[in-house]
């Protein structure tokens, strides 16, 4: 029976039709596996081989990877949203409404963007928690932990700048509350301690963040550019650094 099947398989894979479609077979060798990773632009972030425990869900919880996946989802859905959204006080809210009610799958697009962003905040916090619990920040990964902390802040800031864009009450007041604290920055905020007299409401750090003394149209534009261009760029650069360092520091940590 087995012999027969082998013969049949051989017959099929050696046939002219088969070979016109598949130029060569697939060798099950280590060389093949290694090249598969090295020769693929997307996969070559990986090393050719990793230690077995790095595959273990119970060890990494996959949380770093999930954070990256959520970032990719927000990037793709975000670009699609940009086709329908104008960051001005007249249009912003209406464009979101239009997106929800008139654009095919617009609501789904908006939902995916928002929930992936929330998902990214959850997973980045859990990723940090895992890295701490396994002591993976210890030598030689000290610097990558520091890069991670900056990535954590960048993730929060990405989410926070996006929060304003629907330009509804929720957005407006959450950002108002969130940026009010900047008033109290010591030395640099007009209500902070040790602020020199020249620091006023119209030139302190909060003003720099909001482009105004309250959240207004210029804030919307500023947050839009930060959200769609500046912060994603920064995040991408830092992620590239982060992944590169994971490899250079010897791959996923393990008991030595």
């Amino acid at each position: 029976m087995n012999e027969e099947r082998k013969g049949l398989k051989e017959k099929i894979t050696k046939s002219d039709i088969w070979r016109s479609i598949f130029r060569h077979g697939y060798e099950n060798t280590g060389r093949r596996y290694t090249l598969q990773v090295l020769q693929n632009v997307w996969l070559h972030l990986h090393p050719p081989r990793v230690s077995r425990h790095a595959l273990n869900f119970r060890f990494t919880w996959c949380m770093g990877g999930i954070t990256f996946l959520m970032f990719l989802v927000t990037a793709v859905t975000g670009v699609l949203l940009m086709f329908y959204y104008r960051p001005t006080a007249e249009y912003a809210f209406r464009d979101v409404q239009y997106l929800e009610f008139d654009i095919p799958f617009g609501m789904l697009l908006r939902n995916m963007h928002r929930w992936a962003a929330h998902g990214m905040v959850i997973s980045v916090m859990l990723h940090m928690f895992r890295v701490f619990l396994t002591g993976s920040y210890k030598k030689p990964r000290e610097f990558n932990w520091a890069v991670g902390v900056i990535l954590l802040l960048v993730t929060f800031f990405l989410s926070f700048t996006g929060y304003l864009l629907p330009w509804d009450q929720l957005a407006f007041w959450a950002v108002t509350v969130g940026t009010n604290m900047a008033r109290a920055t010591p030395g640099l905020g007009h209500e902070g301690p040790f602020a020199p007299d020249v620091v006023t409401q119209a030139n302190d750090v909060r003003f720099a963040l909001l482009a105004g003394t309250i959240v207004g149209p210029s804030t919307l534009l500023r947050f839009y550019i930060l959200h769609c261009v500046a912060v994603p760029l920064l995040a991408s650069v830092l992620m590239a650094l982060h992944f590169w360092r994971v490899r250079k520091d010897g791959g996923i940590s393990g008991p030595l």
Binding site: Q97, E100, W115, M125, F156, S159, F160, D168, G178
Partner: peptide, 24 residues
């Protein structure tokens, strides 16, 4: 689950309580 969209923003109508996004 649909993403929330409230009334258009209005600087004169402060909600009580005003909350920052959940992670802050």
């Amino acid at each position: 689950i649909d993403a929330p969209l409230e009334e258009p923003s209005d600087p004169t109508k402060t909600p009580n309580p005003s909350k920052a996004p959940w992670y802050f």
